[in-house]
Computed example of a mutant assay.
Amino acid sequence: MDRRAFLRLGAGTPALAGLSGLGLGLPAMAAAPAPDAAPAGLGWRTYEIVTEVALPAQAAPASVWLPATGGKLGDYQRTLATRWEAPAGQARAALAPGYDVRMVVVGWPEATDGPLRATLTQVVALRDRAVDLGQAPSPAVPRESAAVLREYLRPTRLLPLDGIVRDTALQVTAGAGDDVAKARALYQWVVDHTCRDASVRGCGTGDVAAMLRTGGIMNGKCADINALFVALSRAVGIPARDAYGVRVDLSQHGFKALGKDGDISKAQHCRAEFYTAGYGWVPVDPADVRKVALEEAPGGLPMDHAKVRAARALLFGAWEMNWVAYNHGHDVALPGSGAPPVPFLMYPNGHTVAGTLDSVDPDAFGYRIRSRRLA
């Protein structure tokens, strides 16, 4: 029997919509809000993101955890609708404890006559974001709550804030004045002392202390490089967080390496941001500076190349929103898995009768993610 569900995420409602009234036997998460409309104003673009999973029939009992896009994020992202279909499966919306990490969990308790299939479709509106750090901080900028700021100042399993992390952060920011100056010093240091490593699987793991202990240029991918910025910022008292998501379109800023459309199964990308009063959350992305240096042209580009310098300037204070955010979560416990928490939820996760599926290998796992821009 097909189990189908459709939910919408209200503009001001962080919880997922309730489904019990649809007669599907799925657990209610919250009272269903009114359907959210596409936001008005210039610069918004709307995308459909479809995740499809197909596992062999003999894989059951099996479960998959599919990341869902964040709801209303600042003035740059609105999730307009989410729907799923899981023939012969049992599907539900779920939240991981802490961080508002949203997902759809699909389970197949027994083998079926054909493949185990599930489809998650999300419609998201996006627009570019930028913070003008050349202007004086404004008291009109809404302040983040003290509880949220405390959350993004604490250590995590892979982001310790003592020892080599704190010592490094203090050295890098010595002599810097306010938090913006400190964050800028950390950003420049991370760009200068890291290197994107194409051999790292997926987006890396974000083990910050291990990176610093290398004693030289620190190799990694976005979840390593941007986590380093986040941990160093927190270590000197600046609230900071990773943003885990996926690229959904080509870059309109002329960076071939910083965009992907169509099949985005391997286009996951982690970004970062820090908070300071009078500016709010400030977007940064040192990892993409290193991606431009490595991948923008065959053989790579030197760090003093005009295109690398342009990316370096742009990505302290701005994000091109050809990318959608899932969540800010660390050490994410997958509901019902019984397994240890994963470092972050940016890829589909799965477990079958044969064991844990390889999240960063779409073909071996059996998933495909596609995006398209809607008119």
Rank of each mutant, 00 (worst) to 15 (best):
L149R: 08
R8F: 13
G175W: 10
L80Q: 03
P14V: 10
V292L: 02
H253T: 12
A310G: 08
L334P: 03
L116F: 01
L258Y: 03
T119S: 03
G89K: 01
V342A: 13
L120P: 01
R143Q: 14
H269P: 00
G254S: 07
F274H: 10
G10D: 09
A60H: 07
P286Q: 06
K266D: 12
R290C: 04
L294H: 13
W84Y: 12
E48K: 07
A17D: 15
V289F: 02
V64K: 02
A30K: 06
P56H: 07
W108L: 08
E48D: 09
G206A: 06
A91L: 04
L133H: 04
Y152F: 15
P155I: 07
V141C: 07
A257M: 05
L24D: 14
L228N: 05
Y99H: 09
S138A: 11
D36T: 14
A40V: 10
V50Q: 04
V208N: 04
I164S: 09
P343D: 07
G74P: 01
G366T: 05
R8T: 15
P35I: 11
R271H: 06
H351I: 11
L212Y: 07
D285S: 08
T276H: 07
H193G: 05
V289Y: 07
A68V: 12
G18F: 01
L19Q: 12
V246R: 05
A277F: 04
R309S: 11
A325H: 12
L133P: 15
R271P: 06
L19N: 12
L80R: 03
G300C: 11
S199E: 11
A88K: 12
P87W: 02
L158R: 15
A287C: 06
P160D: 10
D75A: 15
V104W: 01
S20E: 14
H269D: 04
E110P: 05
L232E: 05
R92H: 06
F6A: 14
R129T: 15
A169F: 02
N219Q: 13
V172Q: 07
M1R: 09
R78K: 13
A272N: 10
L170Y: 10
M103A: 12
V200S: 04
A325P: 03
A181C: 10
A333Q: 09
D224N: 04
S63I: 04
G71V: 10
D331Q: 09
A37K: 12
D75W: 08
A313P: 12
P35L: 09
P27D: 06
D331P: 00
R4L: 15
G220S: 07
Y152D: 14
A243T: 13
A31I: 11
N226C: 00
L66Q: 01
